[in-house]
Design a protein around this nucleic acid. Structure first.
Lengths: 183, 183
DNA sequence: CTACTATGAATGAAGG
DNA sequence: CCTTCATTCATAGTAG
């Protein structure tokens, strides 16, 4: 945590990629521990709003964080579960990658949910713990616009001559100029 | 510049997942920019046919591409309303009211579907620019989208009380300070 | 400086 | 159409 001074997402973000601060990760992890796995847009908004207190953050980051965290959590669990059970040393895939973890415990900012003898499926999809005033959310659907063009002859008269008849001709790669002409 | 794995759709198709080439993406993006959002089976067929020149591709891929692109384009606008907080002072959340007021603009702006370039942009559903319409589609059954417009209000109104009883057991609080109060 | 790891970001594919 | 899963790419951070 010492080397982060400056280029972390907290202050001088280098705008290349969001780098969450320790506080942000803690909050996110807490939410994850609480069972939140796939927050709704509303929740993402609020979380992002609050986490911006600790540094720059976008809703997109929160969204991706949960997506990644859930996916990786599940992925790791599945792998761990398959190894520890039976002692049939069946080579579980010669993965050149991930030789894996028997040491990573020190900087595990996660929570280590491994509770083998506790089968609590405390995985809540949305975690309703927000005393939010329920707006008429349904009426938002009505704002759905239909951009139907019922105007009869609304042809955009682009005089696009259909030059290339794309059917199985061995011409070389067009210099990326290819627009809609093939249609 | 292909992917590192060399599994680009152009040459070494790895048959796992379609990896579009740059040219394919270019064409698809052009179509999208032209206003094509939901191509019909007919269009999909033609697009796919043309794009197969640049590499292996199936109609399915085109179909999914438009679906994803449209959905993400839309979600992107929603998520972009993140908190552009730079350096906040300790002014988080004035407690004007004790309950439920801290999210004034959370979801009031959500469904603004007004395109940023609403007047100039022609967002057409099907983009009729195919002067020729030959045979019927081969197997359009597979790509047939469901026009099932069922969207009933689903309200599970249970926000009367706190839902901290996640699974009926007491959840242990995080070792650190619980910052979830913003929710 | 180079290698590896953790993880943010992106997107294809599918389900409902 | 909307949401979610799975796989992959890209990169910051750190160790050797």
């Amino acid at each position: 945590m010492e080397s982060k001074g400056g280029s972390s997402g907290g202050s001088g973000s280098k705008c290349g990629r969001w780098n969450p601060t320790a506080e942000q990760v803690e909050v996110l992890s807490s939410l994850f521990r609480s069972g939140l796995r796939t927050p709704t847009t509303d929740q993402i908004q609020r979380i992002s709003n609050h986490l911006s207190f600790y540094g720059n953050i976008e809703s997109k980051n929160v969204f991706y964080w949960f997506q990644n965290h859930k996916a990786r959590d599940r992925h790791n669990k599945r792998r761990k579960l398959s190894t520890a059970s039976f002692h049939h040393h069946h080579h579980h895939r010669t993965n050149n990658k991930d030789l894996n973890v028997l040491h990573s415990q020190s900087l595990a900012e996660m929570y280590q949910v491994s509770e083998p003898d506790n089968n609590n499926n405390r995985v809540i999809e949305t975690l309703e713990l927000f005393p939010m005033n329920s707006f008429g959310e349904s009426e938002s659907e009505k704002l759905r616009v239909h951009e139907n063009d019922e105007n009869g002859g609304d042809h955009d008269d682009d005089d696009t001559m259909f030059a290339c008849t794309l059917m199985g001709e061995q011409m070389e790669y067009p210099p990326l100029d290819l627009r809609l002409s093939f249609l």
